[in-house]
Amino acid sequence: MILKIEGMTMEFGGLRAIDNLSMEIAPGEIMGLIGPNGAGKSTAFNCIAGVYTPTSGRIFFQGENINGKKPWDLCKKGLGRTFQIVKPFASKTVLYNVTVGSFATCKRRSEAEDKALKVLKFLNLDDKKDLLAGNLTIADRKRLEVARALATEPQLLLLDEVMAGLRPSEVDEVVEMIRKIRESGVTILLIEHIMRAIMALSDRVVVIQFGKKIAEGTPDQVANDPNVIKAYLGDDYVVS
């Protein structure tokens, strides 16, 4: 298992955002993490990526307990992430943005820039390398977010709603991009609201609500799970 979460709980004051969550991701897998708004998906991401230290429970990344490790240490260990609200270095070029990421594994600038160019090419963003990140469209900003994370050479990539706000044709492109990233050997944990994308991409899906896991399985199993339908649509829609 590349990532193993055991009984993770995260409390903010009296609010329990994550409640005893356990899950596992196998290498090479695409795992979807879904749930209604406010279910705790992003909080779970932040716990895994080291932004928060969980109140209790343990997280193992490649067999190593990573509780309390800082985000920058985790990045160097091979855990990359993107942000739901994109955070480009807006006053810098696209190439500069991605080079910052590739410095995680390179010392020299020429080396880092070469790697950044390769990543940009891989994601079909190389024609925009000299544009300022702040001038990109939202679709390209999301793509840049992924490019930066990829440049750090992650083994596990956490993608937080990289398709939100995109047009259907753009969503299809991103789905293709994520497949390509997986084929290059990166394991992916994906938060997404666009069900079409989740269903098309995920090998397995975990559903959480109020911080608790309510279902887990293949996309089909999850889509037909009465608990999941209840969580999203309410009791009246469960066909019994």
Binding site: P88, R109, A151, T152
Partner: peptide, 26 residues
């Protein structure tokens, strides 16, 4: 400004959270 440190300083100054996620001890 052309070295790793320069990139790290710029990144950390502009978007600290993103910089941390990219392996930078801001």
């Amino acid at each position: 400004s052309r070295s790793k440190l320069g990139y790290y300083l710029n990144a950390g100054g502009e978007e600290p959270e993103a910089a941390m996620a990219l392996g930078i001890n801001v």
